[in-house]
């Protein structure tokens, strides 16, 4: 269906203006990261003489934390999808009793503040030796992702025609095989959406990084920036360079996977 006549460039100009205002902090972050060390207490409006020493410092001090975040985020993607995909499939395609209960439970999780989870996990982790561990962070960070992934993937899988599944069943495929070789390939888009969001949730996590790590052995980049900010105020360029580095995954994913974001958002429950 055709919409009212397209608007032209005037709208584009307004649009650019709006986006420029919204994007200003991002610009300012990049600008600050390119200023020479020290004088960024009052940096210029434009990085006329870009200085990359901030990035060198950032990579030296925070490189390891970036790797930590990467490990935790990827681990969390694997765990979340591994848990959520089968569950979403079962919830979408089997009217077993208790389905509603599980769904209700998933909804309730959205109302639980992270601090509640962190509070209790701290003492449990302390007893189990999971503080300051990759596994501990992956498990905790997935709390934001698993319910979300279930919601998104279930919504998608409900739309898979029963006939496709039935046909595979008639051909003698077991439930697991149907799931693996029919449902998963068809659900690629939903899987990617869930994976992208899980990655970003985990990458951005601050609360669990702050509460469940106490040393610098396993320290995600978000916490790295937070502590950097307190200790190196005379090196704002390095702090901001770290911030830019920490933004790269979001920017890259936005560039290559934009459509998945809209899908994820319209499917609800996102932070």
């Amino acid at each position: 269906m055709k919409r009212a006549p397209d608007r032209g460039w005037p709208s584009t100009i307004i649009g650019i203006g709006l986006v420029a205002v919204m994007m200003f902090p991002v610009y300012w972050m990049v600008n600050a990261s390119l200023q020479p060390a020290g004088n960024t207490l009052q940096g210029g409006w434009f990085p006329l003489h870009p200085d990359f020493s901030g990035y060198a410092t950032a990579l030296r001090d925070q490189g390891r934390n970036i790797v930590t975040s990467l490990v935790v985020a990827l681990g969390s993607v694997a765990l979340s999808l591994g848990l959520a995909a089968p569950a979403a499939y079962a919830l979408a395609h089997s009217p077993v009793r208790g389905t509603n209960l599980v769904l209700f439970g998933v909804l309730i999780t959205q109302m639980v503040p992270g601090i509640v989870v962190a509070n209790a996990l701290y003492s449990a982790y302390n007893d189990l030796g999971l503080l300051n561990s990759y596994l501990g962070l992956i498990l905790a960070d997935s709390t934001a992702a698993v319910p979300f992934a279930i919601i998104i993937m279930r919504a998608f899988m409900q739309s898979i025609p029963r006939e496709i599944i039935e046909a595979a069943r008639v051909d003698g495929a077991g439930r697991l095989r149907v799931f693996r070789s029919v449902v998963l390939p068809v659900s690629r888009n939903a899987l990617v959406t869930a994976a992208v969001f899980t990655f970003l949730f985990t990458w951005s996590d601050f609360l669990f990084a702050l509460t469940l790590t106490t040393t610098n052995t396993v320290r995600p980049i978000t916490l790295g920036i937070y502590e950097y900010m307190g200790a190196h105020t005379n090196q704002w360029n390095a702090v901001m360079a770290t911030a830019v580095l920490a933004s790269i995954p979001a920017a890259v994913l936005l560039a290559v996977a934009q459509r998945y974001f809209a899908f994820g958002a319209t499917s609800g429950a996102v932070k």
Binding site: A124, D127, L128, G129, L130, L135, L139
Partner: peptide, 18 residues
């Protein structure tokens, strides 16, 4: 007792080995 305190976290125990 320390293990029991987190008794409901059976899965975790399996993972970390209490």
């Amino acid at each position: 007792a320390a293990c029991l305190r987190v008794g409901s976290v059976a899965l975790l125990l399996a993972v970390t080995g209490c």
